[in-house]
């Protein structure tokens, strides 16, 4: 999971000059981005193959590829990916659902906001991993504490994002609704909802990124399956190729999940003029 996926959509507009843009059209730019990792991987492969380095702690790409291949061929990999995805999916569903619900309520009901928000902000200041021992005491060591940890991690960015989005809806647009005598419900559906949608989707993306962050933590604390388990297993049995293979899987799965979320939600915010697609 790369760090950039948890950042909101703030990519600067493309400032490249027309001539440079022509030189480096879409495909060219993607190729340029691949250049550095490919050169580094190739150099390392050659260094190990020629005996300049042993590659014992940092295996060359071919060995990582072989490890990935054998995991995939045995079917073991899919079991681990499935376990991880189920945990992230459940945690994300609970965390995001609660975040949207509570964020909407506190943003629209001032009394509830004054009552609840200070406590939630205080809880938000607690590093989520600090809950791990407590969750294990409460929920045992099986799936529940893992899903709970992921849900907590997802909840806060979604809660803050949704509440902030609702609070910052342009009053001027609400007045347009009032001029046309929209009912409260129609105002919510025709103005509030579309107005908060972009920021909500950004919050969900952030939440999903954190979900993958916390699934690693959850699986590191004890699991018999999942990509995180592959990491621990690789460490205990000194298999750096397996660790790197699991890391690559995390990157791919995380990126695919993020891409799927964006693809599912882009039609809803088609009207926006942002750099969404380029992220």
């Amino acid at each position: 999971m790369s760090g950039s996926t948890v950042l909101p959509d703030t990519a600067p507009a493309d400032t490249a000059s027309p001539r440079r843009a022509a030189l480096l059209g879409g495909g060219g730019r993607a190729a340029l981005g691949l250049l550095l990792p490919v050169i580094l991987a190739g150099a390392w492969e050659i260094a190990v193959a020629s005996g300049l380095a042993t590659g014992r702690l940092l295996p060359p790409p071919s060995r990582i590829g072989a490890a990935l291949w054998s995991l995939a061929a045995s079917g073991e990999l899919w079991m681990h990916v499935e376990a991880t995805l189920i945990r992230v999916g459940l945690g994300f569903a609970f965390g995001a659902g609660a975040g949207i619900l509570i964020g909407t309520l506190t943003a629209t009901l001032p009394a509830l906001r004054w009552l609840v928000d200070p406590s939630l902000q205080a809880l938000r200041a607690v590093p989520s991993l600090a809950w791990v021992p407590l969750f294990i005491l409460w929920f045992g060591i099986l799936e529940t504490p893992k899903v709970a940890l992921i849900a907590v991690g997802v909840f806060f960015p979604v809660y803050v994002g949704v509440a902030g989005a609702i609070a910052s809806v342009d009053r001027k647009l609400i007045e347009v609704g009032r001029i046309f005598r929209l009912s409260k419900l129609a105002l919510a559906r025709r103005i509030l909802l579309p107005a908060v949608l972009p920021a909500t989707l950004t919050a969900l993306r952030t939440g999903l990124g954190l979900g993958f962050l916390f699934v690693v933590a959850a699986e590191l604390m004890g699991a018999s399956e999942g990509l995180g388990y592959l990491l621990v297993d690789g460490q205990q049995f000194s298999k750096p190729d397996q660790i790197l293979a699991a890391i690559i899987c995390f990157a791919i799965v995380g990126k695919l999940a993020d891409t799927a979320l964006v693809a599912l939600t882009t039609p809803l915010v088609r009207w926006q003029d942002t750099a969404r697609e380029t992220l």
Binding site: K172, L173, E175, V176, I179, I191, P194, L197, V269, W271
Partner: peptide
């Protein structure tokens, strides 16, 4: 209150960006 017979054009166009 807002009346069906009364329309208002604001200083800024206040168009809804999602429509």
């Amino acid at each position: 209150g807002p009346h069906p017979g009364v329309g208002l054009v604001f200083q800024e166009s206040r168009l809804l960006p999602w429509l």
